[in-house]
């Protein structure tokens, strides 16, 4: 009886060791990627799967907060998410991200130095920049002939009813802050009080609020000037070079969408393999070809076509003053309320 029991014990141990070995040999062959819609080209995903055998389940979202809602609900575990800079910061503050083991992502050497150690990830521990872009002024130069290079130039009485802006309270307030010489993150009750009269003057001039496709109103000729994502401006420029993109000299918002690994990721190894894969210059180039944002990968930038490099919305000339958004916590609620009130007044 005893012998049988000990034999069984040996078997159990052996079996569990074997099982252990097996699971060590075969890491889960898939990763759950939760990224912006249409931001990850199918070709890149297919290439990665072909090379590594890791299947990519690509789920998409349309805003950082939409992503957070599903992430914090815990309904699904993700290996990779693609938040923008202020969301990365919020996630780091709440210990929701795993640090990246850079030894497993050797291609991280390709990341341009100006995209490392940004304020949202100061020690460059948690995120791999995917694409960067800015929010600037786009002008239909056939209709608007004067020089436009400040926020105040846009919101002039003569352009009343010819303006499109992003439907995004934080963005709108950051422009008003810029116009009084403040940075986009100087958000305090006092500065918010200061921007109120400016917004009261600006918002009635706006014809269209659109965050999803502000290019439509410009292309249709229903408006002549706008403050939009650089990607939208790049598409407009490709469509017709009469659409000029200007970064306001007070400074503009630069967003950096990055890959990061949630703390509860089932397959961080696979996630890092994906990070390394997309940092290859030839792969990163494919992403640029699909989406006309600024590629933070210096090696990939070298391989872009002249047209891609010369699109002023993707690669603004000169040395513009750019700043990312920081996580501003509760102040976001105030910003939301102010813009809602102002719009309701009109």
């Amino acid at each position: 009886m005893k012998r049988i029991a000990s034999l069984a014990g040996v078997f159990l141990v052996a079996a569990s060791v074997l099982a252990g070995c097996q699971s060590a040999q075969e890491p889960p062959k898939e990763i759950n990627l939760f990224a912006w819609s249409e931001y990850v080209p199918q070709g890149v995903i297919d290439g990665f799967t072909k090379e590594t055998g890791i299947k990519v389940n690509y789920e998409a979202y349309a805003s950082n907060e939409e992503m957070l809602a599903k992430l914090v609900s815990g309904a699904q575990k993700y290996d990779l998410i693609q938040p923008s800079e202020y969301t990365i910061e919020a996630l780091i503050k709440e210990n929701q991200l795993l640090p990246v083991d850079w030894s497993k992502v050797p291609n991280s050497k390709n990341i341009g130095s100006q995209f490392k150690n940004l304020p949202h990830d100061p020690e460059h521990k948690y995120s791999v920049p995917w694409m960067a872009g800015s929010v600037g002024i786009v002008v239909n130069s056939e209709k608007v002939t004067e020089e436009i290079d400040e926020y105040d130039d846009v919101f002039q009485e003569k352009y009343s009813g010819r303006i499109v802006v992003l439907d995004d309270p934080r963005e709108i307030v950051s422009w008003a802050l810029g116009s009084i010489g403040k940075g986009p993150n100087d958000v305090t009750p006092e500065t918010l009080e200061q921007v109120k009269p400016i917004l009261a003057k600006w918002l009635p001039l706006v014809k269209v609020y659109d965050s999803d496709s502000p290019k439509t109103a410009l292309l249709n000729g229903d408006v002549d000037i706008g403050i939009v994502w650089s990607g939208e401006a790049a598409i407009l420029y490709n469509e017709n070079p009469k659409f000029k993109y200007v970064l306001p000299k007070e400074g503009a918002h630069q967003f950096v969408d990055s890959l990061a690994i949630p703390a509860n990721a089932p397959n961080p190894e696979g996630a890092m393999a994906f990070m390394d894969y997309i940092l290859r210059p030839e792969v990163s180039k494919l992403i640029s070809a699909d989406f006309p944002y600024t590629n933070p990968n210096v090696e990939a930038q070298k391989r872009l076509s002249p047209e891609e490099k010369n699109n002023p919305a993707s690669y603004p000339p000169g040395d513009p003053k750019l700043e990312g958004f920081r996580d501003i916590g509760e102040q976001a609620v105030q910003i939301d309320k102010i813009v809602t009130d102002m719009k309701a007044e009109g």
């Binding site: 907060e65 439907d167 995004d168 309270p169 609020y209 976001a332 910003i335 939301d336 809602t340 719009k343």
Partner: peptide, 26 residues
Amino acid sequence: NDILGGGKVDMIGNIIENQFKGNARN
């Protein structure tokens, strides 16, 4: 309202949705 009205005025639906899908996360 957002697409054909240019989103110039908010509707009750926007206000509620923004609390979940907008910056405020409220």
